[in-house]
């Protein structure tokens, strides 16, 4: 095995799982996410050694591939999400499964690009500028999508978001807090 392939294997070993999760959160389907990741990694293999920032390349390409998958007609048939906002669910915070189901349901209410912005910013920890570069859109669009995305999540989850010092915490430019008593 040559050095090039060893490096590529090391990279894939470390990044495949995070990329899978990133793609899943963007497109909402594990199988599609895995296919998107494999396609991107295959492209990366060909370009290995010629890409300055393979992690950045892979992340960007995976998100774009996952967004693209959501445009396909078969996906739209499978994902019959209504654009109407549901009633805020009862949020049993004692169970992780509730968190999982609720955030998933909430993410499904975001159009793919808004979802990608939220995931890149709050899971991957990218800045507005980095997110704009990843999605090839203006920084103003990222800001707007961030605000819209968080607003939708707030409404769907029935929780509130408060601004926090971006310098504090991992990636938490904002945090989710329980909704006030109803």
């Amino acid at each position: 095995m040559n050095d090039r392939e060893t490096e590529f294997r090391d990279f894939v070993g470390a990044q495949m799982e995070p990329l899978r999760g990133l793609a899943y959160l963007t497109c909402g389907d594990w199988q599609t996410a895995e296919d998107a990741v494999l396609t991107v990694l295959a492209k990366l293999y060909v370009k290995w050694g010629r890409i300055e920032r393979p992690d950045s390349y892979a992340r960007t390409a995976v998100v774009r591939a996952a967004i693209d998958e959501t445009r396909r007609p078969w996906w739209r048939r499978e994902q019959s999400t209504s654009h109407a906002m549901p009633e805020p669910p009862s949020f049993d915070r004692t169970h992780a499964v509730d968190d999982r189901l609720h955030i998933r349901a909430a993410l499904q209410h975001l159009p793919a690009r808004l979802r990608a912005v939220v995931v890149l910013r709050f899971l991957e920890g990218l800045s507005v500028q980095q997110t704009a570069e990843a999605l090839a859109c203006p920084e103003g669009t990222v800001k707007s999508y961030t605000a819209r995305g968080l607003d939708i999540l707030r409404k769907v989850l029935g929780t509130d978001f408060t601004d926090q010092n971006p310098e504090e915490g991992r990636y938490a430019a904002r945090s989710v807090r329980p909704a006030p008593s109803r």
């Binding site: 894939v12 799982e17 899978r20 060909v46 955030i103 995931v119 899971l123």
Partner: peptide
Amino acid sequence: HDLYDLLQAAKSDAPPARYTVDDAVAAG
């Protein structure tokens, strides 16, 4: 709740991966 934690939770029950490093190399 931190949004990061929620997003992590959303993908925390991932099914077993269908592809391995070998698959990625082969596809490449």
